[in-house]
Design a protein around this nucleic acid. Structure first.
Lengths: 340, 340
DNA sequence: AGTGCAGAATGAAACGATTCATCGAATCAC
DNA sequence: GTGATTCGATGAATCGTTTCATTCTGCACT
C-alpha cells in the first residue's frame, strides 16, 4: 500500500531518486541507495504496476487468446507460454475465444487498452481478419500468431509442420505394409487440417497408393466426429486396414467405433493420431501419434514477444516446429488376409 | 489511441462531460450526449482501462491461480471462471503456481499491485499461509479459495463435498458385493485427499468391513503413482477385488497396472476414480468415477468475486458442491471366487 | 426586474509511477 | 582562487481517467 512518495519521505530523498533506485540507474550514491532500500524493506513497498504502466504506456502482461482451454491441446501451449513469460517477469492473461470471432474481437479490442507487451493468438477458425492485430502493432505491442496463421498475416508466427507430420505418419503406415489407408481429415476451413490432409496425400501418391472414394472424410476436431466418421469408414464395402486421424480426439472416436464394431486395434485396424495429448498414453491401446510439441509452440511464441519487447528489431520470425512420430500400441502390420 | 481529451475537444465539451457520458450518468443533456457519442464513434475511441484503473484503484481483472493448467482437472474450472467473468465484463489472468509456494507468493505479491477485482486461488498443496490473501482483502480485492481451503481461512470459498463423494463411491462398490476394497488415497497433506480417505473409511466402517493393513496407500495425484501403488496392491497376498482411487489420474495408473498383470477390469478388479475427467470416457474400460463439476467450481468462484465487487456485503459464502457418482464400465460385482 | 434554485457543465486535483531539464555540490585544472 | 566539468539529486510535467467543488445557464416565482 505504500507509494513511492512515502518511500522518498522516509528515506529523505526525492521521488525521482527512489525511481532511479527502483530501476537500477547507476546515478545514485551508495548511501542514498541504502536508505531507499531500507525504507522499501520497512514499508513492504511494491511498485504499482498500474502507475508504471500508465506512464510507460506498456505493461508486463502478455495476452494469450486460445479457442478453448478445455480442448486438451491448448493447456500445454498455454503452459509453455506462461513458463517462459514468468521466468522473464511477464504475466499471462488468458482469453478463450470459444472459436467465436465476435468474442475474440471483443477481447482484443478491450485488452489492447491495457497496453500489453504482446499478443499471442490462436485465432478462431473462421476469423481471418488481422485488423485488430495491426492495431496492436501500431500501439507498440507485438503480435505472434500460433498454430493457425491468417493467410494475409506477414508478421511473427509459430506453427508446426503439419504437412510433414502427416506425411511421416502416413509413410510409417505404408512401411508397415498397409495399402488400404483412410484418413479422417480436420475441417477443411482450418489451415492445419488442410496441411495434414496434403501430407497424407503426398505420402500416398509417392507410394503409388490409391485413395478410393470415401477414404477421405472431413470432420471437426473432436471425438464425436471421429466416432461417427470411423463408423462410416468401417461400413464401407472394402474398409481400410489403417486410419490416419487428423488429431488425437478424432482418433479416440475411431477407437470407440472399432470397439463397438468388435474390431481389434491394432490387429484388425491400425490407428494413428496427431497431437500426442497426455491422454494418448492413457487410452487402450496407447495411441500411435504425431507429437507436435504444444508446450514449445507456446514457449516459442512467448519468447518472441519478450525478445521484441526488449528491442529485437530483426525481420519477421516464422518458427516452424518439426513434429515427431511417436510409435505406441495402436499400429501394427496389417493382418495377412481379412474378410470385410 | 484517441483519448478522452480528444473526444472532449471534438465534441466541444469538457472532459468531465465525456466521462459522464461514458459512465452513463444522467446529468448530461441529450444534445451533448449525442455529440460525444458521435465523436467516440468517429475516432474509434476505447477508454483506457489503465487510466481508469489507476484512478479508481481497481481493475476488471480477476487473478486466478491454479497449480498447473496441464493437470486435466483445472482447465474446466478455469473455463467456468472465465465464462462467468467474461459475461460480466471481467477478465481472467491465469497463473500457474506449479504447486510451488514460492512461485505462488511471487505471483500474488506482484499481481496485487494491479488492483484486481478479485483473486480466485487453488493454493499449492503445501501453502497454508493466508497473509497474502489478507493483503488482497485490505487492498479491497475479494478472495475466494477453491478446492483446497487453508484451515485458517475464514472467508469465501467453493469446494466439493469430497468426503461424501468418496463415501458414495465406496458404498456403491460395497453394494455391488465387494468386501475386499482398497483405496489409493491422495497426498495426506491435501485436505481433499484426506476428506476422500475419510469418506472411504466411513463407508467401510458403516458396513463393518475391515480395511487390512496395506489396503490404504497414499500417493500423489498422478498416473505414475497410481500405477506404482496399484502394482503394490496387486502383489499383496490377498489382493483387493475393488480399488477406489483418489482421482482419475491415479485410476488410470491402476488400469495400466492391471493390464500389465494380465488382470481384467472390471471382471477381476473393479476400479473407481474421482473427478470425471474428459479422458475417463476415452479410457478402456470407461472409468466409473465421481464427477465433481470442475466447471461449476470455477463458475461459482467467479460469481462470488463479481457479486462482492458489486457491493455484496453478505456474510461469508462457503459454496459446497455435491459430487455425483458416474457409473460406467470399470466396475462390476466381484467374481464368484478367485485365486490370488 | 430581481432573486432563488435546480440542472448542466466545467476544470482542477488526484491516482502512482517515470522522465528530463535543471540545479547544487564537489572535483579538478590552472 | 576561479572557472570548468562532472556527478547526484531534484521536482515539475506527464500518462488517461474519475471525481467533486464550483461555476454557469436558464427558468420560475415574486
Amino acid at each position: 500500500m505504500a507509494t513511492i512518495k512515502e518511500i522518498s519521505q522516509r528515506a529523505g530523498v526525492s521521488i525521482g531518486t527512489v525511481s532511479n533506485v527502483l530501476n537500477g540507474l547507476p546515478t545514485v550514491r551508495e548511501a542514498a541507495r541504502k536508505r531507499v532500500l531500507d525504507a522499501i524493506e520497512k514499508l513492504e513497498y511494491e511498485p504499482s504496476l498500474l502507475g508504471r504502466a500508465l506512464r510507460k504506456d506498456k505493461t508486463n502482461m502478455i495476452v494469450m487468446v486460445v479457442p478453448d482451454i478445455t480442448n486438451p491441446f491448448f493447456p500445454s501451449a498455454v503452459r509453455g507460454a506462461e513458463d517462459v513469460a514468468f521466468q522473464n517477469g511477464f504475466r499471462l492473461v488468458l482469453c478463450n475465444s470459444d472459436n467465436d470471432a465476435a468474442k475474440e474481437a471483443t477481447y482484443l479490442r478491450e485488452m489492447r487498452t491495457y497496453r500489453p507487451s504482446g499478443l499471442i493468438i490462436v485465432p478462431a477458425s473462421l476469423s481471418q481478419g488481422i485488423d485488430e492485430a495491426k492495431a496492436y502493432l501500431e500501439a507498440g505491442s507485438c503480435v505472434v500468431y500460433v498454430d493457425r496463421i491468417p493467410t494475409k498475416w506477414r508478421g511473427d508466427s509459430v506453427t508446426s509442420k503439419h504437412e510433414e507430420g502427416a506425411y511421416a505418419a502416413t509413410r510409417y503406415l505404408i512401411e508397415l505394409g498397409h495399402e488400404r489407408i483412410a484418413t479422417i481429415a480436420g475441417p477443411l476451413t482450418s489451415p492445419s487440417g488442410r496441411a495434414r490432409l496434403e501430407g497424407f496425400r503426398r505420402a500416398m501418391k509417392e507410394n503409388r497408393l490409391r485413395v478410393p472414394a470415401g477414404y477421405t472424410q472431413a470432420a471437426d476436431f473432436n471425438k464425436h466426429d471421429g466416432y461417427e466418421r470411423g463408423k462410416r469408414l468401417l461400413a464401407l464395402r472394402r474398409p481400410p486396414t489403417a486410419i490416419f486421424a487428423a488429431n488425437d480426439l478424432v482418433a479416440f472416436g475411431v477407437l470407440a467405433a472399432l470397439r463397438e464394431e468388435g474390431l481389434r486395434c491394432p490387429q484388425d485396424v491400425s490407428v494413428v493420431g496427431f497431437d500426442n495429448l497426455d491422454d494418448s498414453d492413457a487410452v487402450v491401446p496407447a495411441l500411435t501419434t504425431v507429437d507436435q510439441f504444444g508446450y514449445d509452440l507456446g514457449a516459442n511464441a512467448a519468447q518472441i514477444v519478450i525478445d521484441r519487447t526488449r528491442g529485437d528489431k530483426r525481420s519477421v520470425r516464422r518458427v516452424l516446429l518439426a513434429p515427431e512420430l511417436r510409435i505406441k500400441e495402436s499400429s501394427a502390420p496389417p493382418a495377412r488376409r481379412r474378410k470385410p
